[in-house]
Design a binder for these strands. Structure first.
Length: 486
RNA sequence: GGCGCUAUGGUGCAAUGGUUAGCACGCGGCCCUUUCAAGGCCGAAAUACGGGUUCGACUCCCGUUAGCGCUACCA
């Protein structure tokens, strides 16, 4: 049995924007495939469009990948630093007769539907017609060059036959060659187009599987033709379906957040985001959904990739986040909470050493009620700071009974007298007071909750008391007495 | 316009000729809980349409429709 070499895959973003969720998922699939197969994941920046290129955006893309822990093994390589290779390849293609010089005026694309609907007949057909420069005599070519006319290099697409390739997701594909236009390889500026750059690099880098968005499916035959012309063997392709917005059109800025960094800023956990993204367009085959990264890696296969475009469902993403917030080992969660509290200015150094246990316990108590990281500094603020206000809705709901101030005051005294500060003594003291005062325990419990954490929503009251500590609970109760009337 | 891809509840997926079409999100209800979540249980909700092939189609074939992609000296 022949030794099969390990797969080499790549993610090739263009620095024309931030890392969007579609790109992130493509990167994730490449990475999962590489990890599953023990292969190599390469990062290559395709920055050959000088007009739209924004070099300063590269770092943001790398940061997005780092946040997702999608780590590359090689690169990042930059196409802008490899221009000679593409030029040489184009020259070779020219010599071997696979390409020709084109002196046509560069047509500037002006948008998807720029062509007026009216007289499409002539104009649109012209788009796929073979370039007339292909049939220029060598004398005519010489003359153009002498005149100093700018030229591009185009691929001479075959005019008959079919081109086939293997797609791990879509199966065997074949396209009639007459449908393939004489596409540009090298622009008159000397810079390569996507088709040339991608193929030359994929060959040079030994890429075995090209995993990319399905928007490239239609152009793949051109690349297959290029591989052949370059005497290289085409890789296995795997086109992954597109991610759509709720209106089923391609996900874009107008659908809201499409940048991965925005989700990081909003307080999503990378583990949750990864899990969610992995299941958008891929399935391990069964019903399991909560799949930590190790599980994702061991189960990932290209045959599990779907062929249908999918809608990005934020509600489901939030559900995944709440799941990870709950199920992550507490030590894995703490660093994220720490970062969040730092961001909001609530962090205290002792929670990292002398009070680490308290911190872990408090976070553990809070986490079933959280959906996003900022919940720790917003609704749970009173657990980390004495500086908190009383939620208007909470006081309206639980402080409306006229007996509340007196009850809170008496509870403060009763709790202050406690020798042991733990769940049951607090529980007994409160219920005893309620009984003595002739009120339902619930009334006191709810009023107390608002007094000590400022909100109607919190973990069970007595567990909350234990975590807050006696002195804080007592002083917050006393502080609340005048506040009830205010 | 041309070429291509796709089509299971509102959403994401499962079921690769034989199931009462399954799971999850979301939605509604109940339980738990004198808060709110989490958790448990129950419920409403789908094979786009029309033809074939077959003893039998979600599944295979054809057509229609719809959506999307490509059709750039963008990627």
């Amino acid at each position: 049995m022949a030794l099969v070499s390990k797969p080499r895959v790549r993610f090739a973003p263009s620095p024309t924007g931030y890392l969007h969720v579609g790109g992130a998922r493509t990167a994730l699939f490449n990475w999962l495939f590489a990890r599953h197969e023990g292969g190599t994941f390469i990062l290559r920046v395709e920055d050959t469009d000088v007009e739209r290129n924004r070099p300063e955006l590269v770092e943001g893309i790398l940061q997005g990948l780092r946040w997702l822990s999608v780590a590359w093994d090689e690169g990042p390589y930059f196409q802008s630093q490899r221009l000679d290779r593409y030029r040489n390849a184009a020259e070779d293609l020219l010599k071997s007769g696979f390409a020709f010089l084109c002196f046509c005026q560069a047509v500037q694309y002006a948008g998807a539907d720029a062509t007026p609907e009216g007289e499409e007949g002539t104009e649109k057909i012209a788009r796929t017609a073979p370039c007339p420069c292909r049939d220029l005599t060598s004398a005519q070519r010489e003359q153009k060059i002498c005149e100093g006319a700018p030229y591009a290099i185009r691929f001479a697409a075959p005019r008959e036959g079919v081109t086939r390739f293997e797609d791990a997701v879509f199966g065997q594909r074949e396209v009639q060659n007459v449908e393939i236009e004489d596409f540009v390889l090298l622009r008159s500026s000397g810079l390569p187009t996507y088709q040339l750059g991608a193929v030359v690099d994929d060959v040079a880098m030994g890429i075995t599987h090209v995993i990319r968005g399905a928007d490239h499916l239609s152009n793949t035959p051109k690349q297959v033709l290029l591989y052949r012309a370059l005497s290289a063997t085409p890789p296995i392709f795997a086109h992954v379906p597109l991610i759509l917005g709720p209106d089923r059109t391609r996900l874009s800025k107008r659908h809201g957040a499409t940048s991965v960094s925005l989700y990081a800023d909003e307080g999503f956990l990378p583990e949750a985001f990864r899990n969610f993204l992995a299941l958008l367009g891929w399935s391990p085959g069964g019903d399991e959904e909560f799949l930590p990264t190790s599980e994702l890696i061991s189960r990932f296969t290209l045959s599990g990739v779907s062929r249908t475009n999918g809608v990005f469902d934020r509600a489901k993403l939030e559900w995944f986040n709440s799941q990870y917030l709950q199920k992550l080992p507490i030590d894995g969660l703490l660093p994220y909470v720490k970062t969040e509290l730092r961001r909001s200015g609530l962090w205290r150094a002792q929670w990292d050493d002398s009070e680490r246990e308290w911190f872990a316990r408090t976070v553990d108590l809070l986490r079933p009620r959280t959906r996003l990281l900022p919940d720790f500094s917003h609704w749970a603020r009173a657990f980390f700071s004495d500086d908190f206000g009383y939620d208007p809705d909470a006081r309206a709901k639980f402080w409306k009974d006229p007996k509340v101030p007196e009850l809170l005051s008496k509870l403060a005294d009763a709790l202050d007298a406690l020798v042991e500060w733990s769940h049951d003594p607090c529980d007994h003291a409160l219920r005893a007071l309620a009984a003595a005062e002739g009120v339902k325990a619930g009334l006191l419990i709810n009023a107390t909750r608002v007094a000590i954490v400022g909100r109607a929503v919190a973990p069970p009251l007595f567990e909350t008391m234990v975590v807050l500590g006696k002195s804080r609970v007592v002083s917050r109760l006393r502080r609340a007495v005048p506040a009830v009337a205010a």
